[in-house]
Design a protein around this nucleic acid. Structure first.
Ligand SMILES: [Mn+2]
Ligand SMILES: [Mn+2]
Ligand SMILES: [Mn+2]
Ligand SMILES: [Mn+2]
Lengths: 145, 145
DNA sequence: GAAAATGTTTAGCATAGACTAAACTTTATG
DNA sequence: CATAAAGTTTAGTCTATGCTAAACATTTTC
């Protein structure tokens, strides 16, 4: 009982710290995933399309892309389309895989399609490898009915 | 086919917008839930304990509590404990209920305990009423084994 | 009850992510 | 090919969340 009390602050803060860490990479993940999507769909990713799909202002995209470039996830030149680096592609693919599993999993437990699309956009970033595995296991055993 | 394309930017941005909205209330939810927890456990909530459990600096807690006070979620006086308003209690209780369902649900699909504790801290804020219902349904049908 | 320990606030700073408005560049159109 | 439209960047601002270091207040201890 006492040991549980004593550890509880440390245990508790570990969870909050993980959530804060998740939030730091969340935007990067969404951007690269979206850029990959646009390249796949339209052949190239332009700032305007990113802004439109994210629902943010153009200037916000310009700002964030600068950071992604500093992080080595994208390359860009003025007035040109945006490209992903090797690291960017890797993050995009991992992100898409995770996103798909989470969304399909929500559908499998009976969440309506529109809601699954919306909720998975936020949930995906807080799902650890172990939870993702559990979701994937569930999907194998009990596919979408 | 075309209509899907046309709607896709709007549909896509709706999901991102919801996630951004979730993030705006996330910290408030975690704070009031934690404050309720401390009051329950120790009889009162002090800044230091909040900081310790969240894993942030004391000054950060002071800052954030000012905002929560402006939002009408807490009341406080210098060098005194922190209290929840009616609205604060409501948010804390709703938050705890949601958090519990998410955590138990993760356990039910086979996520290890430590991981369920950590992941639920982030996931809880992105779970809509419908998804929460689906999780609750699942728990009734298939309780933790 | 004075000194030390603990708790709390203030001050100053940094980064991320959002916005609007204005400037500039590229592309399309008449 | 000149002008209009569309796309992109820059500049300036705001809020939220975090930090450290220093000041201040309360509580405990001797
Ligand atoms: Mn997302
Ligand atoms: Mn919670
Ligand atoms: Mn939380
Ligand atoms: Mn989140």
């Amino acid at each position: 009982m006492k040991s549980k009390r004593l550890q509880s602050a440390k245990l508790r803060s570990a969870a909050f710290k993980r959530t804060r860490a998740d939030h730091q990479v969340e935007i990067s993940e969404d951007y690269v995933e979206l850029i990959a999507e646009l390249i796949d769909e339209k052949g190239e990713a332009r700032g305007t399309d990113i802004a439109l799909r994210l629902g943010v202002a153009n200037a916000t995209v310009v700002n964030t892309l600068k950071r992604l470039q500093n992080q080595g996830l994208v390359t860009q030149e003025p007035y040109r389309a945006i490209f992903l680096t090797i690291d960017g592609w890797k993050m995009a693919e991992d992100g898409k895989r995770k996103h798909d599993i989470v969304e399909k999993f929500l559908l499998a437990i009976g969440v309506p399609e529109a809601t699954a699309r919306i909720d998975s956009e936020g949930i995906e970033h807080h799902v650890s490898t172990e939870t993702l595995k559990a979701m994937a296991r569930f999907l194998i055993r009990k596919p979408i009915n």
